[in-house]
């Protein structure tokens, strides 16, 4: 039954429900965004005036720039590492059947279901034991563990749509297994790979708990935000929060758009 075929009142009630639900989800973020542009130091209504002062303050903070640069470095490296691992895991699942494959898949998809606090502590204990803790690359290692399953899930979905004969067809036409990978599997999976790069970047850019445990003195943006918060409650937080939110959501939307566009061209193919 479509929404329109219901009565007028149930329809209005449903719309109201949806608005409330979204409002509940996004009101804090929206409020933070609004107050980041408010001239007043305290978040009170009515708003006192429009101002970029807090953005200027945050963007003139050396420590924030360092943190942003760290975050971008970590996010970039994490995206590449976790997408590479994710592709490997997804391809293994697509290509091979072996004993214990179910357990292999469960393990590969496990990290995001472990509380990040536990993961962070474990990472700290493990990495410091093998002297890999307290550096920026420690964060890259920790984030790659967390983000790889996301990359794997996206690429696995794409590979499941491949014609099972296509790799054999490439070999049959003279492509060695490596060239079949290079000229057939990778081009086919490309939209999912690009999408996975953006999504894993977003996962890393947002992540706080693990970064806090293993980063040592190399703060990422979320860790910096918490340091600012611990010092004082300043509207600067609203400004930096808005920036982080915008970057993250942009990455997620990009990942979504790339994948959906590819999905649509798939559907066009099906309808032929």
């Amino acid at each position: 039954m479509s929404l329109a075929s219901r009565g007028k009142w149930p329809r209005l009630a449903l719309m109201l429900y949806a608005i409330l639900a979204y409002g509940f989800l996004f009101a804090p973020i929206a409020a933070s965004f609004v107050f980041s542009l408010n001239a007043d130091r305290f978040p009170t209504l009515p708003l006192s005036g429009f101002s970029f002062a807090w953005y200027e303050a945050i963007l003139s903070d050396r420590a924030v720039w360092d943190a942003l640069l760290n975050s971008l470095r970590v996010a970039f490296l994490t995206a590449i590492l976790s997408t590479t691992f994710g592709f490997g895991a997804a391809y293994t699942d697509y290509r091979y059947n072996f004993f214990g494959k179910g357990a292999y898949l469960a393990l590969a998809l496990l990290p995001p279901t472990v509380p990040v606090l536990v993961l962070g502590l474990a990472m700290l204990a493990f990495l410091s034991r093998i002297s890999l803790s307290g550096e920026l690359y420690s964060v890259v290692i920790a984030h790659s563990v967390l983000a790889t399953p996301f990359a794997m899930a996206i690429i696995r979905l794409r590979l499941s749509q491949i014609d099972p004969a296509i790799e054999g067809a490439a070999w049959n036409l003279g492509a060695s297994p490596w060239r079949a990978m290079r000229y057939v599997i990778l081009p086919f999976a490309r939209p999912a790979i690009i999408s996975a790069l953006f999504l894993t970047m977003a996962v890393s850019f947002d992540e706080y708990a693990m970064a806090w445990f293993v980063s040592g003195l190399n703060e990422t943006v979320p860790v910096r935000v918490l340091s600012i918060l611990q010092g004082s409650v300043s509207p600067e937080i609203n400004a930096i929060g808005s920036i982080v939110f915008t970057i993250s959501i942009a990455l997620v939307v990009l990942a979504q758009v790339i994948y959906t566009r590819n999905q649509n061209s798939q559907n066009r193919r099906m309808s032929h």
Binding site: D163, A165, I166, G168, A169, A170, W171, N172, L173, G174, A175, S176, P177, R179, A180, V184, P187, F188, R190, R269
Partner: peptide
């Protein structure tokens, strides 16, 4: 191996490269 012989095949699904 398959890629080392000259025995091309026309597949039931055709297996054309969609990209």
């Amino acid at each position: 191996a398959a890629h080392e012989r000259d025995t091309p095949m026309v597949w039931q699904s055709l297996a054309l490269f969609p990209f």
